[in-house]
Design a protein around this nucleic acid. Structure first.
Lengths: 165, 165
DNA sequence: CCTTTATAGTTACATATGCAACCAATTGCA
DNA sequence: TGCAATTGGTTGCATATGTAACTATAAAGG
């Protein structure tokens, strides 16, 4: 009959991770929960996924990008972008034409309907972000931004490229 | 060369999101990149996924948990845990028996092989974490921990507990 | 020109994940 | 007891995502 629930006796020899203090784990929980909370605001209403929304957000700022450029700006891979675009074009939210001087490239932009949706979702997303940041003091917010900049410069692992794969 | 991509003319009227400064987006990139970097260290070598590793990490600290308790401690849902356990038991890394007084519950723990793997992977994971944190000053590290605590207390959206236990 | 190599984007397949329905053991309570 | 409600866990199905292979243009070099 072994002891009940305490940290396993093996602890001393094995030095297990404390997941709840482990940075990657905490970031993952935090990130998922926040993104999910925002997504809930629009996913059902507009039948759109997070990746699709990100593509729209980029196209709202940069008119006429190609799919590859969208991939760069969203840090998504090109397959994900391709699929998101297929759905968005199908739904009439994004327009796609072919580049004049390079028939491989597409030229992308939001349609009227795309803009209409964007103009409803963007403020909701910003509101959620404010809600989260409201839990912090001014000082903490300043540090957070600084720290994120630091962690992400040259890619989060410092190895160079981001999102290894 | 065509003019460098400017914010679309529509910007003024539509106030698009600046994804690269949007907290949820940045967290998501950072989190994925770090987790992926760590996962690369062990995924191929041991044929194990991030969720499986998390289950093992919890079982390394708490011997004899049930599947539901593992789910609580990892913030994964019970289906994910069930599937991770199926693979881990199959691979001989986790032992599963039935609770004496409640035949629904399983009683889980690492096997010899499980411990052996754990003892190789845990130090690598910790090393990666240190690598990331090394980009910050002592002061920044302190703030980061504080800020994460703050953002995650009562669940990241402030709506309800998400990492109980 | 013709061949080689690179680039934009799509498709196919295999795996992962989320949700709902489900089975079985347990508990609550009339 | 006996039956409804609850809980631990698994399974099925529908989606999502990553990797590699593929098509089509384009660029580079003989």
């Amino acid at each position: 009959m072994t002891a009940k629930r305490q940290p396993a006796p093996a602890t001393a020899e094995h030095a297990p991770l404390q997941l709840e203090h482990f940075l990657p784990y905490r970031l993952s929980i935090l990130s998922n929960t926040i993104s999910q909370a925002i997504a809930n605001d629009y996913q059902r209403r507009y039948d759109i996924s997070v990746t699709e929304w990100r593509v729209m957000a980029v196209l709202a700022r940069f008119e006429g990008l190609s799919a590859r450029e969208v991939a760069e700006r969203t840090a998504m891979d090109k397959v994900a972008v391709s699929r998101a675009l297929a759905r968005l074009v199908e739904a009439g939210r994004v327009s796609r034409s072919i580049h004049d001087n390079d028939k491989r490239r597409s030229v992308l932009g939001l349609t009227e309907a795309g803009w209409a949706m964007h103009d409803e979702v963007a403020p909701m997303a910003r509101a959620r972000e404010r809600e989260v940041l409201a839990r912090l003091s001014d000082e903490e917010r300043t540090w957070l931004m600084l720290i994120l900049d630091r962690l992400m410069e040259n890619g989060p692992t410092g190895k160079g490229g981001s999102v290894p794969g």
